[in-house]
Design a binder for these strands. Structure first.
Lengths: 149, 149
DNA sequence: TAAGATTGAGCCGTCAATCTTT
DNA sequence: AAAGATTGACGGCTCAATCTTA
């Protein structure tokens, strides 16, 4: 097991960080230009809708791999924007439920076309044929260890 | 030219963001665990050394694609840590020079072994054979448009 | 004691405004 | 007016501490 990375590994590292930040930033820019909230909001609202409308903060934490205190503040912002709201948890007095509001449900189909077009513009259009699938497969190998750990 | 991304593109997008953040975070964690400064500091100090010891802030901006005001604050931190220092620019009264200090020069060889091992651990070890080169090549296609724009 | 969640302090990046020099 | 650079205000993340309930 080598301790030192080869040239190709260093190049892959460098481009991974650069491409990740560049593409993410470009997609967020497109959302912002359309007057829409950032990706983090979309992710949470989507999980809430998928779950039937509500989740415990700790479940959001697990699904999206966000730290507890960051989930807490993200919910603050969603609540302030009227997109979600906190409700007491009957089973567990310590916990809460976060529920998506009508306004939050209405936001998702507004964001998706812009989000989708941005992904196609900044990722899809740059790759040909099976390249996207190959890229996804290789990136999957880099994500797995973090999950398994 | 499709407006909608295919499934493989969406998966590539999702994993690109996740892998980029996960790998970057893991490498930064390893540096922090060794009591070393973040990657951004290394990048600037390395460019300064490569340039023979000093650069204009605007050159750092161009080489590392960092916004002007962020370069300004990054230099503040490096200066406060005694790793770099500001000097007046003789040719252009508006500008300045940022010079790496002895302490800054000494830091680079301290960081590299840890940085290098982290890259190998979080990228190199997860890929086999020519996979790193393939990944680097595909990621290069995603970076190019941002540069060309 | 541990789990769920929040809060205050501090760091870093972004936006807009500002200052100096060209 | 434009370029190089800085600054103040603010948003979001991280650390450590805190609070409540299990």
């Amino acid at each position: 097991m080598d301790e030192k990375p080869c040239e190709a590994t260093i190049l892959a590292w460098s481009r991974l960080v650069r491409a990740g930040q560049a593409v993410f930033g470009s997609v967020e820019d497109d959302l912002k230009a359309a007057g829409l909230p950032p990706l983090g909001w979309y992710d949470v609202l989507l999980e809430l809708r998928r779950a039937g409308g509500a989740l415990r903060p700790v479940e959001i934490e697990d699904k999206l791999l966000i730290a507890q205190h960051n989930v807490s503040r993200l919910i603050d912002r969603l609540e302030k924007a009227g997109l979600a709201e906190r409700r007491a948890c009957k089973n567990d007095g310590r916990g809460q439920f976060v529920a998506i509001t009508e306004k939050g449900l209405a936001l998702l189909p507004t964001m998706w076309p812009v989000y989708r077009a941005a992904i196609q513009k900044h990722v899809g259009h740059q790759l040909e044929g099976a390249e996207a699938a190959t890229l996804a497969s290789l990136l999957g190998k880099l994500i797995a260890p973090a999950v398994a750990r």
